[in-house]
C-alpha cells in the first residue's frame, strides 16, 4: 500500500464531496460545472485510493526518489519562516520585513555569516526599492508601523 497516495486520495475525496454539496446550493446554471468537476474529482480520487491500496509499496512512490526527500524538520522550518515573513508584512511594511526575513533566513540556514547576511539583505532590499518603487513606480505593501 502506498500510504502517501492513499492519504492524499482520502483528503481529495472529502474535498470533492464537500465541494459537491456546497455546489448543490447554487442555481441550476451556476452549479452545473462545479458539481461535475467535484464529482469527477471524488471519483478519480477514489480510483487513486484503490490503486494505492492494491499496488504494493515501492521504494519510489510516484515521482519521488525517497533518498532525495528533504527532512520534514527543514521543510517545516522553511515554511514557518516564509509564513512569518508574510504575516509580518502588514505590520512592519514590506521593506523592513524583507530585510528582517533575509537576514534571519540566511543566518538560520547557516548559508553565510551575519555580516554577509546583512550585506545581502541590505543590497537586495535597496535593489528592489530602486527597481520596483523608483523605476517601475509599483506599490509595495504598507504596514501599520512603517
Amino acid at each position: 500500500m502506498n500510504k502517501a497516495d492513499a492519504v492524499i486520495a482520502a483528503v481529495l475525496i472529502v474535498f470533492g464531496s464537500s465541494a459537491f454539496f456546497v455546489a448543490l446550493g447554487y442555481p441550476a446554471g451556476s452549479r452545473m460545472l462545479p458539481m461535475f468537476y467535484s464529482a469527477t474529482l471524488a471519483v478519480l480520487s477514489l480510483l487513486l485510493l484503490v490503486q494505492s491500496v492494491l499496488r504494493p509499496s515501492r521504494r519510489t512512490s510516484g515521482n519521488i526518489d525517497e533518498d532525495s526527500v528533504e527532512p520534514a524538520r527543514k521543510v517545516i522550518m522553511a515554511v514557518i519562516f516564509i509564513a512569518g515573513y508574510v504575516a509580518l508584512i502588514p505590520v512592519l511594511g514590506f521593506y523592513f520585513s524583507t530585510a528582517c526575513f533575509l537576514v534571519s533566513f540566511i543566518v538560520a540556514t547557516r548559508a553565510a555569516r551575519l555580516s554577509m547576511a546583512l550585506a545581502v539583505s541590505a543590497g537586495t532590499t535597496c535593489a528592489i526599492y530602486a527597481f520596483f518603487n523608483i523605476l517601475l513606480k509599483l506599490q509595495t505593501p504598507l504596514g501599520i508601523l512603517f
Partner: peptide, 9 residues
C-alpha cells in the same frame, strides 16, 4: 540558501 529567500521576496 541565499538564492531561496531572494526568490521568496
Amino acid at each position: 540558501r541565499i538564492l531561496a529567500p531572494i526568490i521568496c521576496v
